[in-house]
Design a binder for these strands. Sequence first.
DNA 1: TTTACTGCAAATATTTTGCAATATC
DNA 2: GATATTGCAAAATATTTGCAGTAAA
Lengths: 172, 172
Amino acid sequence: MDKDIQDRFSTYLEENRVKERRKTEVRFTILKEICDFPKHFDLEMLQDKLDAAKYRVSRATLYNTLNVLIDAGIIVRHQFDAGIIAHYPHQKPIPIQYELRKKAETHYHFVCTRCRGIREVKNMPHIQAPGSNFTAEYASLCLYGLCNRCRNRIQREAQKNINQSQTNKSKK
Amino acid sequence: MDKDIQDRFSTYLEENRVKERRKTEVRFTILKEICDFPKHFDLEMLQDKLDAAKYRVSRATLYNTLNVLIDAGIIVRHQFDAGIIAHYPHQKPIPIQYELRKKAETHYHFVCTRCRGIREVKNMPHIQAPGSNFTAEYASLCLYGLCNRCRNRIQREAQKNINQSQTNKSKK
DNA sequence: TTTACTGCAAATATTTTGCAATATC
DNA sequence: GATATTGCAAAATATTTGCAGTAAA
């Protein structure tokens, strides 16, 4: 499976779609590490993984390689907090995530608006685009809402507040 | 319609969902300008619009207000180039776009992978999420592909290349 | 009168670029 | 040998924060 992806990347580099592209050890090593991630990953995770493998790559090269891989159609970029999640002070945005496109195509993403957890949901919903004159190559669907844990937590907190206000009333 | 949105913002500010929030002239003025945009807009466009209205607002306040509006469920954030568009040197990413949530819910977005144009498509495709145990509040669907103009342009260019290589052959 | 909001400038974070050295074709 | 890639550090961008002054509750 990894082999298949490496081959596809090879073919892309041979194609010279954008300009002449070269097959380098750095690019294939980065791709190899990417293939090992079970889910999506961010830049820092990738950097750490390469460090752990004692393979030093500069940040600039990492950004460049990720773009080449995106252009090759091998990985996709996700920005999961775009949408309806506000960025408040001291609450850092979700870093941009990357994922093998092959994997991304088998599921969709559910983002909890409270804890910001990202859950992969296996069954891709059926999307039926109405008659239109463009060719969609790729669809990105992100659902926002509350995960079970946060929904329960909110309910418990609401209950606690009600209890408290009743206690306060009886004091008066 | 604007009135309705202003009222909803008012209600949100009174609710103190996150912490105490205050109704300020700045916030309502920004929202008023936002309501005027026919489509999505980015931070710079909003800043320019406020400048044109001779209304000075600092950048920090603008970011803060946008987050408050997102949290209030009045606007949504879009990052249209997350996905399958590579960021090459000298090719700036599409700036983060904002849009009235009400508007966003009536259409979806199609992003051309070549010219990066964003087209709103009126008919929202029917999305049927399979049985799952979370409550989706909002769905963001982005389709990537080639717009008609770019598809034609690519075809023309391909044809030109074929013609050229034939001319070269006959020279030899 | 308490606490949130605002503007400003500085600090952070993120991504890109210019250039010299290196590797691929 | 010509040109793309890489690493490094500096630059450009984008966003956040600290703080002092102002305004809303």
